[in-house]
Design a protein around this nucleic acid. Structure first.
Lengths: 256, 256
DNA sequence: CAGTGGTCTAGACCACGTG
DNA sequence: ACGTGGTCTAGACCACTGC
C-alpha cells in the first residue's frame, strides 16, 4: 500500500460554491475510503493506512482525514485503536460476534449456543424475495434454514436467502463444516461484509412446522424478525426471516 | 445568560497524567453542559449559548466546546442548526414527535392517530416497578392506561408507571384536556425530558382484557414492548408496557 | 451586514502499544 | 524510541439565517 496515487483534486476546491452537488472535502475522502473498503483494498480485520499516510495520499490535512474516519468509525465500518491504528470492522472477532443479534437472556447468565443447519439449496427468487435483494424474480438464490439453540433449548428458527450469483459455492456441506457466525463465513469465503441491517418485527403464531422445529405448542406466540442486511454502498446481500421463542429471552433495543 | 461564571479550572490541566480519574477537557465541558440542561438553565426548544460564548465562559477553545456539543448532538440531546444556533431537543416539535415510536405501517401510507385515555390513578409501587424506576417498594407511583389508534383501528395498549413524587399533579382530567404526545406534556408541565430509553420486546398471547380493548380475538399474538425511559443523568422516569397489534404494522429497527 | 454553525488547516503535546 | 490515534489550540474562510 506504499504506492500513493494522488487523487484527482484540482488546486481550487473541487466544488463550486452554491453548487447543488456540493460536498465537503471530508465527505469526499470518506467516499474514497469507502471505495477502498468495497474494492477490498483492506480486508476485514486488517489495518488501513495511518491518518498521516492517507492525508498525504489524498493531499488533505490530517484533520480532514480524521473527520472522515470519525464518521466511518461511528457507523462501525472502522475501529480505531489508540497506539495501534485503524482497522476494518469484522464479524470474526469474539468481541463483536453478536453485533447483529439482539436476543438476550432475561436473567444475566449467558449460556452456550449452537447452530443446527437444516437445509441449504439453490432456488429461484420469488417476486417478494427478489425485491428485497434487488434482483429480478426468477434469479438464482441460495436458501438455507437453521435452528439456533441456547443451553440446548431451540430458540431461533432462521430462513435465509442470499443472491445466488455471489454465493455460488455455498453448500450444505461447507456450512456443516464451518463453525462460527455465518457473517464471518461470508466475509472470509465470499468477500461480502455485512455492514448494516434493517429489521421489521412482528408477533405471530407458530405454524405446525415451526412449532415442531422449536419444540413448542402450535400457535404459540413467536417474535418474527425480518432482516435485510447490506454491504458497502447499501447493496442488499441477505434476506432473513427469523422466528424467536421469547419465553426466557427478549429482543433488546435502545432508543435515542 | 450573560453572566459568565468561569469554571474552576487551574492553569495546569485539571488532571494528573496517568491518573485513574483522567477525563479529556471536552468531556468535562460536555458534563458541564449536561448539568446546565439538567438544571433547566436552557429549556427544551430554546437555544443554548453560541460556541464562542461557551468557550469564553469555560475558558477553553471553540474547538473543544464544539467537540463536546458534537457528542451531545450525536446523542440527540442537542440539535445544531447552521446559521441559527444550537437548540435543546424537545418532544414538542412535529418533526420529532414520534422519536420513540418505532411502529410503522406495512405500506407507506401514514394515517391519523388518536389516543384514548382509559385510566389514571395513584398507586403504590410493586417490587418490580420500584426496581425499574429506582424507587422503594410501596413508594407512590402514577399509573395510567391508554389505547392508541391508527386510522381508528386500536393498535397499541399502553400501561405506564411514573414516579409519584415527581408527577404530582398528573390526573385523568389533565390528561384528557391535553392533546399531543405525553412526553411533550412531561416536558412542559413537569420539567422532565425523556432523553433515552431501553426496550425489551417479546411475543405474547393477548389476555381476555387486552383482546377486548384492542378488539382482537383472545390469544392473538401481540408484540409486548417494555420500556424504561431515562432523563438526564440516566435517571429512570417512566416504565411503560405496551402491547402492539402487528397485523398491519411492524416495529422497525436499524442495526449497525 | 452581523452572527451562527460548518469546514479546513497547521502545529503542539499527550496517551497508548510495540519493539 | 518510535509511530499510532487522541486532545487542544488558533485562525482562516465558507454557508446559512435573519435583520
Amino acid at each position: 500500500m506504499s504506492d500513493s496515487p494522488p487523487i484527482d483534486r484540482p488546486q481550487t476546491p473541487s466544488r463550486a460554491p452554491h453548487s447543488a452537488a456540493f460536498s465537503p472535502l471530508y465527505q469526499q475522502i470518506k467516499g474514497l475510503i469507502l471505495q477502498g473498503l468495497d474494492r477490498g483494498e483492506w480486508k476485514p480485520g486488517e489495518s488501513i493506512p495511518s491518518e498521516l499516510e492517507l492525508a498525504a495520499r489524498f493531499q488533505v490535512s490530517q484533520g480532514t482525514v480524521r473527520k472522515a474516519i470519525d464518521e466511518l468509525a461511528a457507523e462501525n465500518l472502522l475501529i480505531r485503536r489508540q497506539g495501534k491504528g485503524t482497522f476494518v470492522a469484522t464479524h470474526n472477532e469474539a468481541k463483536v460476534r453478536y453485533r447483529f443479534l439482539r436476543l438476550a437472556p432475561d436473567d444475566g447468565r449467558t449460556g452456550v449456543s449452537s447452530s443446527q443447519i437444516l437445509d441449504c439449496r439453490r432456488a429461484k427468487a420469488s417476486a417478494e424475495i427478489a425485491a428485497a435483494l434487488d434482483l429480478r424474480a426468477g434469479d438464482a438464490v441460495v436458501n438455507m434454514r437453521r435452528v439456533l439453540s441456547f443451553d440446548d433449548v431451540p430458540t431461533i428458527l432462521d430462513d435465509i436467502w442470499l443472491p445466488g450469483s455471489i454465493f455460488k459455492g455455498l453448500t450444505l456441506e461447507s456450512l456443516l463444516r464451518y463453525r462460527g457466525p455465518v457473517y464471518a463465513l461470508f466475509e472470509t469465503e465470499f468477500g461480502v461484509s455485512m455492514v448494516r441491517a434493517e429489521e421489521k418485527l412482528r408477533a405471530v403464531a407458530a405454524t405446525d412446522v415451526q412449532a415442531e422445529l422449536l419444540r413448542i405448542p402450535p400457535g404459540s406466540p413467536l417474535l418474527q424478525v425480518e432482516r435485510i442486511a447490506y454491504t458497502y454502498g447499501d447493496r442488499p446481500m441477505e434476506l432473513r426471516r427469523g422466528h424467536y421463542v421469547t419465553e426466557r429471552y427478549h429482543y433488546r433495543n435502545s432508543l435515542n
